[in-house]
Each structure stands twice: as structure tokens, then as C-alpha cells.
Nucleic acid binder design. Sequence first.
DNA 1: AACACTGTTTCGGCTACTGAAACCAAAAGG
DNA 2: CCTTTTGGTTTCAGTAGCCGAAACAGTGTT
Lengths: 262, 262
Amino acid sequence: MVEAIEEKNKKNASYVISSVDRAAHMLLVLAESPDSGVTELAEATQNTKSLTFRLLHTLERRGLVRKDPERRTYTLGYRALLLGDQSRRQSRLISTADPILAELSQITRENALLLVREDQKAICIAIHESPEPLRIFAAVGRLGPLHAGGGPKVLLAHAPEEVQQSVISGALEAFTEDSISDGDALMETLDQIKADGHVVSVGELDPNIFSVAAPVRDHTGAVIAALAVNGPTARLAEGTLDNVRSAVLTSATKLSQMLGGQ
Amino acid sequence: MVEAIEEKNKKNASYVISSVDRAAHMLLVLAESPDSGVTELAEATQNTKSLTFRLLHTLERRGLVRKDPERRTYTLGYRALLLGDQSRRQSRLISTADPILAELSQITRENALLLVREDQKAICIAIHESPEPLRIFAAVGRLGPLHAGGGPKVLLAHAPEEVQQSVISGALEAFTEDSISDGDALMETLDQIKADGHVVSVGELDPNIFSVAAPVRDHTGAVIAALAVNGPTARLAEGTLDNVRSAVLTSATKLSQMLGGQ
DNA sequence: AACACTGTTTCGGCTACTGAAACCAAAAGG
DNA sequence: CCTTTTGGTTTCAGTAGCCGAAACAGTGTT
């Protein structure tokens, strides 16, 4: 499997321009660890200090990175706001999902999320947060595994077979006791998800979090996203689960229709 | 002489990695013109097709760019959401201003904006939109001139002298009939703004838009941002202007206090 | 005052970036 | 249905400019 990855890398590597790749990587690292210095970032990205300094300098000129002149420390720049905002605006999926997520989070009083698959990762592309003071923290744009959690498993269940195989044959990290770390068990779950049209996942990524998710389809019927609700298991009483489940399902079909309609 | 040349070299080319710079530029261009093809972007960025293709390919691998496989067209990727979101979260200025902007837009029923200066440009870093159906479109993260509009002029008025000189001696583009395109007149206005502690600007960037702005100061008393309200001039009745003005002023001082407090 | 630490600058070698041009695939047009 | 055009992908060789190493310069610390 390492071979496969290397093969793939080699195949694509010809068109990757490495300094740009490193710059992109550094931006993403900086997003996760703000207020870092040159040395710190150099270590985090495995680059030399010189290169790190030059990358930061270059990105700063474009406003994507901001330097605190006193503390000698770097943060994402304001120009990055444009990228995030425009990315959101440019996505038809996000804009049509937005009101549905708002409604869903209001009905269930929990976080409502929209996720898509990117290669072998899940990425959350929109959130409406629970109105309750106790709620799960979730950030837009962050990558997560495909084999754990409600939304991710829905995405994996409807992913092309080669992706499923690749994920299953990889290391299935166990985040909690209830994580699925066995390939066969995972495959069964995926079949179940396809049969049920939704999934309820409890404590897979974090012991105190549950999530209910259902697939979102485009006009061809292909699954392009997962709609999910997550919240603290403490709030998961008997009756509420059914309510959440049906709310998620109706929201997902409604969103699918809106996407297919036009 | 020699110094000047050295200075110029230092500022222009010294530590900039050109491929990274071009990549950053391309991302920003892509943000403004989504769904573009390789050729189109190559023209827009003045790069060759090959380079454009390779840049896009590289950025795509990092999720910052997304390719529509059917239409052969590129858009910002979902990973850009992370950059925008984290940039917002990481800014103390934005997070403290947010509730104030919300309140201000609710009181005035117009857009409430927060702007900062970046080099010789103004950039809007936060917006709360008017609840009215008719409202000014404004995007976060976009750059604008310093010499036209309420917020920008406040920023320019409190900018270091070299910035003022540089802006004034440059080409003062006239966007409307009411734009200030004369250097001396602009300088007078700036003095007036500093004396008044706020500014009312009507029809400078667009004939149908007014704006009221006031400076935001940090704990040292330095002006670090401008708080502004803008809306359609059609809604600018006699009495309302005073209300808007006082709302902006109280909001700006409140924000300054909150920033200075800690 | 010496030290430790991080950010900045220099410099030569040589990688890997670059532009030009060929090559394809798909759409437009006749 | 063939031709033309347009736009995306791939190849290739030359050398621009990237890169790491190491010296240097600030800043805070013991």
C-alpha cells in the first residue's frame, strides 16, 4: 500500500511544484497553530529555517500571512478571509444547504453539519451550531478520517470501491473503545448504512459524542455529501433519537431534491 | 543612490520565492473569478499555460483548489474554508468587534463593517449585514482604495505620514463625481477627520452609497481599524444621519475600550 | 557579562522550475 | 462527417533561481 501511494505520488509528482506545495502546506499548518515563530514552523513543517522564513515573507506580501512585529510571530493574514468567504460563496452545495442546516440545528437543538469526501478524508464544509450552551466544537475546513463518525462513514459507504479498499486496508485508527478498527466489521457497517439510508454513531471519535448522518445526492443520484447532526451523548435520551433521526432524514432528502431540481 | 537601489532590491525581490508568489496571486485571482479554465487564468495572471496548469495541479492536491472534472474548470477548494475560518478566529480584533457590529447593524438597520489598512489599501475584515432587503453588497477580505469612502479615509487620516504622502502623490482614482481626486483637498479632509473623530462620506465610491465611519484604537491609543456603517443614500433622511453617527461613535469607543481593557 | 535563542542574511552549487512547443481531446462549425 | 478551433495536458532541455548550511545580528535571560 505504501507502494501504491508512492506510485500515485510519482505519477502526479511531475506536475507538483514543490515550493508551492510547501507553501500551501505551511499555510495549513499555520492555520492550526497560530502565533508561531519561524523556528517553530520550520520544525512543524520539516523545512529549514531559511525556507520557512522565505515562505512566510512571500505569503506576507500577499496578505495571506500576518506578522506581529513585536512578538516576532506569524498568523494567518486577513487576505485569507477572502479565500474562505469566496470558497463558501462559490459552492452551490454550501449555499443551498445553509438554510437547511439552520433549520435542522434549530429543530434538533444540536450542531448540524455538512461533510464531503476529499480523497481519503472527510471534510466538514458547513456548520450551524447548537443553540445550547453545551455543544460540540467543530471547525469548518478541517480534515478527519473516513472510518469513524456518522458523516464520514456515510461518505465512505458511498465512495468508489477503490477508496473503500484503500481505507480498509490502511491503519484504522481507534479513537475510542467503540471505534471500528477491524476491516471486515467496517465493511459490514458500510453495507448496513447503504441499506438503512442513514447511520447512528455513538462514541466513535470521542466517547461523549453521538452523531446521526444521512447521504445527500445530486441529480444523478450519486452521493456527494453527508448531512449530520452531532451532540453530547449526555443529551441523547430515548425519545429524542427518533426525532433527530427523522429530522436528519427529511433534511437530507429535501437538500437532495433542491440540488436535483435545478 | 546606492542605498536606494539596495532598498528597492530588499523590498522587491530579495526573499520572495517567485513560484510561491505566483501561486498566492493565482489563488486570489481565482477567488475573484471562479469557474475559470487554465487558459483564462493564465491570461488573467500573465503566466504561461504550463505554469498555470502546474500551479493549479499543486494547489488542488492540497485541497485549496477544486477542479470540476466535467467542465474542466477550477474553483477555490474546501480547504480554503479552513484558512478563512481560522484567520477570523485568530484575530482578536474581529472576535471582539463581532458582537458590536451585530448590535450596530441592528440599531442602524444598515451594514456595519470593520476595516483595517494593509499597506496602501483598505481591507474589510468583518461585516454584519443590514436586515433590510435593499442593502449594499460587501465582501470580506477584498482590497479597496484608501482615499475614497468613509472607513478608508479614517484609516488614511491616521496612517503614518509616509503612507499618506505616497497615496496622495499617487493617482487618486475618481470613482464618482464626488470622489476626492485632488491631493490638497484630500489632505484637508484628513485633517478634518482627525479633528472631528469621525467622517460622513456620501457617494464617493458609488453615487448611491453613503457611509459613516470612526476610528478604533488599541490600548496605546493608536488607530488600528475603522468602524463604519454604509447603506443606500436613498435611506439617508435628515434625522437618521444623526442617529447613525452617534451609534457609530459609541460603538467605536466601546470597541476601543474593549480592546484596551485587557 | 556571558549565554541561549530566534530571526535574518549571505553564498555557491545544482536542483527543479520554466517557457516553448508538441500533443490530445473535445467542441464548434461547415 | 470531416475540418477547424479551442483549450487542456505532456514533454524536454537550459538555466534561473531555489535551497541548505552556516554565519550574523538582534533580544531576552541567567
